[in-house]
Structure formats: C-alpha cells, structure tokens
Amino acid sequence: MDINFWGFSLAKYSEQFKLDVVQQYLAGDMGFKAIANQRGLCNSMVRLWVRLYEAHGEAGLKRRSATYSAAQKLAVLQHMWARELSYKQTAAAFDIRSPGHISNWERCYHSGGIDALRPRQRGRPKTMPDSQSPKPPLPVDDDTRTREELLAEVSHLRMENAYLKKLDALVQTQQKQRAIARKKRK
C-alpha cells in the first residue's frame, strides 16, 4: 500500500477517481468538505489530492515507488540547504511523496557522509559461502603411504567408531525413557 506523509493511502482509489475529484474541486462549484461528503471521503484527502495535482499534474495522483541513488539524495539535500527549504517544500519540488525520506537522508548524511546515503543490501545476509568446499584429496594407495600416516588413519577411524557407538547407546537410552514415560501416562 502506498502511504504518503499525510498518512492516507493513495493506492486505495483509482487514478481516474482521484482526477475526477480534483477536477470537481477545480471547477469551483464545491469546497473540500462538500466534495468529501458527497464522495464519502475525508476532506483532508481531497485537499491532498488537489495539492498533488497542482504541484505535479496527473503524475502527482499516480501510485509511485521510487528509489534514489546516493548522488540524487545528496543533490536534493544540497538544494534544500542552499534555498533554505523545509522538508515539505523540498519534497514538493522533487516530487518525493514523503518528506520523511528527506529528513532520514539528512540525518544519515550528517552521521556518515555520502556513504550513509548509499542503498543498503536488504534481507538476511547469506550464511553459506558462495564457493563449494574444497574437494577431498584423492585417496592415496596404501602401499605408498608411510607407517605414521596409516597409524593416524587407524586412530581416526577408531575414534569415529567409538563416537558412533556412544551416540547409538545414547539414542537407545532416550528411546527407552520415552517408552517408560508413555506407559506411565496410560
């Protein structure tokens, strides 16, 4: 949903409906409140649509989602500072739907410079590396290996075997405990 800085949803109504409301107001027959009552709207929403139309034409009534580069954000801030404009005036000048964006940009710029204005990567960071893990070395023929290498492998295999036996015993103990607990519940 497209929420602007006045807190209204601009996406709820079609562009044609908004344009009809604005043209009805600009015809001069009725005021904001009368049009709002007739159309079942809030009078401040009618006022908002008229202001957007006056500032940007029909494009001001269209649903809009924009992304800005760091250079564009900096240019907006410099324009605002040079002309001593408010956030709302700057937003109107650059057709930025939310003046809150400009205040965020200014705060980021003052705290971290131009780098803080660059878009950040969104979402959760990757937990897995991009590259595959290195492949294990090809097995070497037992005849070419030294006695120490063979003894190290035997020791490693014995430890692995002992670990698996203990794991199996632990799993069997837990299964027995669950079975006893089930019998007690019945």
Score class of each variant (00 low, 15 high):
residue 179 A to V: 02
residue 175 Q to V: 03
residue 120 R to Y: 01
residue 130 D to M: 11
residue 128 M to Q: 12
residue 155 S to L: 04
residue 180 I to D: 11
residue 121 Q to D: 10
residue 138 L to R: 15
residue 164 L to E: 15
residue 113 G to Y: 02
residue 165 K to I: 13
residue 163 Y to T: 14
residue 142 D to G: 01
residue 171 V to I: 11
residue 124 R to S: 09
residue 105 W to C: 02
residue 143 D to E: 13
residue 118 R to H: 08
residue 118 R to K: 15
residue 144 T to C: 04
residue 128 M to W: 03
residue 118 R to S: 06
residue 120 R to C: 03
residue 178 R to A: 11
residue 183 K to R: 12
residue 171 V to A: 07
residue 152 A to S: 13
residue 116 A to F: 00
residue 164 L to H: 13
residue 151 L to G: 00
residue 136 P to L: 13
residue 112 G to P: 00
residue 120 R to N: 04
residue 147 R to T: 09
residue 110 H to G: 09
residue 109 Y to H: 12
residue 130 D to E: 14
residue 139 P to M: 04
residue 166 K to Y: 02
residue 181 A to V: 00
residue 154 V to H: 10
residue 155 S to C: 03
residue 156 H to W: 05
residue 115 D to I: 02
residue 129 P to K: 15
residue 168 D to T: 10
residue 125 P to F: 02
residue 150 L to T: 06
residue 147 R to W: 06
residue 124 R to L: 09
residue 155 S to D: 14
residue 180 I to T: 09
residue 153 E to W: 05
residue 128 M to I: 06
residue 108 C to Y: 04
residue 149 E to M: 11
residue 163 Y to M: 11
residue 182 R to C: 00
residue 140 V to A: 15
residue 133 S to T: 08
residue 140 V to E: 15
residue 138 L to C: 09
residue 136 P to Y: 04
residue 154 V to D: 05
residue 175 Q to L: 12
residue 164 L to M: 15
residue 131 S to P: 00
residue 157 L to N: 13
residue 126 K to D: 03
residue 133 S to L: 13
residue 148 E to S: 12
residue 151 L to C: 05
residue 155 S to R: 06
residue 116 A to H: 01
residue 181 A to H: 04
residue 134 P to F: 10
residue 161 N to Y: 13
residue 167 L to K: 12
residue 145 R to S: 01
residue 180 I to E: 14
residue 156 H to P: 00
residue 107 R to Q: 11
residue 171 V to P: 00
residue 105 W to A: 01
residue 168 D to G: 07
residue 178 R to W: 03
residue 105 W to R: 01
residue 182 R to N: 04
residue 105 W to T: 02
residue 177 Q to K: 15
residue 150 L to N: 07
residue 131 S to I: 08
residue 173 T to P: 00
residue 136 P to H: 09
residue 156 H to A: 15
residue 184 K to Q: 08
residue 184 K to I: 08
residue 159 M to L: 11
residue 156 H to M: 08
residue 146 T to F: 02
residue 126 K to T: 08
residue 133 S to I: 06
residue 164 L to G: 06
residue 105 W to V: 02
residue 167 L to F: 06
residue 123 G to I: 00
residue 166 K to T: 08
residue 136 P to C: 05
residue 163 Y to F: 12
residue 183 K to D: 11
residue 147 R to F: 07
residue 144 T to V: 14
residue 148 E to P: 00
residue 113 G to S: 05
residue 156 H to T: 14
residue 105 W to N: 01
residue 176 K to M: 04
residue 118 R to A: 08
residue 171 V to C: 02
residue 141 D to G: 00
residue 181 A to Q: 11
residue 149 E to W: 02
residue 112 G to C: 05
residue 107 R to P: 01
residue 143 D to N: 10
residue 161 N to S: 15
residue 111 S to M: 06
residue 139 P to F: 07
residue 167 L to E: 15
residue 109 Y to D: 02
residue 128 M to L: 12
